[in-house]
Design a protein around this nucleic acid. Structure first.
Lengths: 230, 230
DNA sequence: CCAAAAGTGTTCATCGTACACCCATGT
DNA sequence: ACATGGGTGTACGATGAACACTTTTGG
């Protein structure tokens, strides 16, 4: 133990970009909070936290999301390590950013309220502290890439969803419309979806059939990677 | 200054995956070294170093490559932050891995020798210490993705190169053959290459024309991203 | 003259894209 | 009956993939 005696030690933090899909508003949203501590108290920022000696960086990232949302086992991916000297005026901190996809109806409202967090549409993002805007920009870019190559869209929807809902999500991610015939054809042709008998009747008179995943195929796809081509 | 007083500080390191293309052997290679210090002295590893208080993580990554190769301004990209608690038995270290692409004839032989480093084909990689094998695996995966979407292959070749050389590089990266007619057509159709009058005559009697980039278009492509589709 | 690598075109299948009408039903 | 969103099929162009012969020239 303890080689490397004379090297510098640094604070290592996590910052968490948490995506949710607001189906009613057809908007992709981020869970942002007003900092209630110094420095930069009162300004908008991402949820963050420090990596402790006795936890891995991944564990710290999970903990941070859990502390804000009460959720575990959410889709999470490391985004990038931000390491400029002056990125945080409060000290020399290296921050590893992660992004998460959560089902927007699942989170713990109390916790979120306690932290002073709110869901903000990505089209109306406020100025964020430090380099957090850069993190968000990178996260959105990466999310768009992922959504083309892995079926992660489903992480943002409830168990049962309709094709129009799924299309709405993709349109929110890319902020551009898709042709509904082409969209439906492509999705169904992958064999990932299982049609249910039940219909969703809130958003139209005719009603749209609910679908659910084929989890087996989903796993295969996750391993192999593939191309949505949307 | 100095908020965050009671948080843990950690060692933060860089590990550097350095790619070079050995045109003669048609092989993509990595610059690896036998550690001449504890722990794990004598075993194969990546080049590494600690991030110092007064330098950014990116700067540290550049420094590490410079210390081993004497090169500056090389293509470099952050790969991933590795943060398991026990990843280095010598202590709790978070390592940010970077990969670099260098022109294999440019580096400083003295420095490389001094560090006990050698070029190893990616098809014959030895067992590496700690999680370095995982880093390399991720780097190769990312390099393959990049080579499809950005013209980074050129970073691995000398200023003047022939189409067969370029094709050899891509074949080394993907470890699979390409059709030379399709390859040539696609590359030329992008308008990135400028044909020179000179021929390379070492590897064939007929000789192959040298090409060079159109650096202007190259910059455009770098910004926009695009698709090689190889 | 021959070996060895460079260079060159065409065909076919696949996939993405564009596009307009009918269906079911709640009010 | 009508307004509203759900659901369906076809035609065209672009792109990737497969494939074989001619050219040059040093030895």
């Amino acid at each position: 133990m303890s080689f490397y005696k004379n090297e510098d030690k640094l604070l290592v933090a996590i910052d968490s970009i948490i995506f949710g899909f607001d189906e009613g508003q057809h908007e992709l949203k981020l869970l942002l909070l007003k900092r209630n501590f110094e420095p930069a108290k009162g300004e908008w920022s991402l949820m963050g936290g420090f990596v402790k000696k006795e936890e891995s960086v991944d564990e710290a990232a999970k903990r941070v999301v859990f502390e804000l949302t009460g959720l575990q086992n959410v889709y999470m991916e490391q985004l990038y390590a931000f390491g400029n000297i002056d990125r945080d005026p409060g000290g020399r901190i290296v921050s590893v950013a992660y992004f998460s996809l959560i089902k927007i109806n699942d989170y713990d409202r109390e916790l979120v309220k306690k932290h002073g967090a709110s869901w903000i549409p990505i089209s109306e993002l406020p100025v964020l502290i430090f380099d957090h805007s850069e993190m968000v920009k990178k996260a959105i870019r990466k999310l768009r890439i992922r959504a083309r190559t892995q079926p992660i869209g489903f992480e943002l929807l409830p168990e049962k969803f309709t094709i129009p809902q799924l299309q709405g999500l993709y349109e929110a991610i890319y902020q551009s419309p898709f042709d509904k015939r082409n969209f439906r054809r492509k999705l169904l042709s992958m064999g990932l979806l299982k049609k249910l008998d039940e219909k969703e009747k809130e958003s139209s008179k005719k009603g749209a059939f609910y679908y659910r995943f084929n989890k087996k195929k989903y796993k295969e796809f996750l391993e192999k990677g593939f191309n949505f081509g949307l």
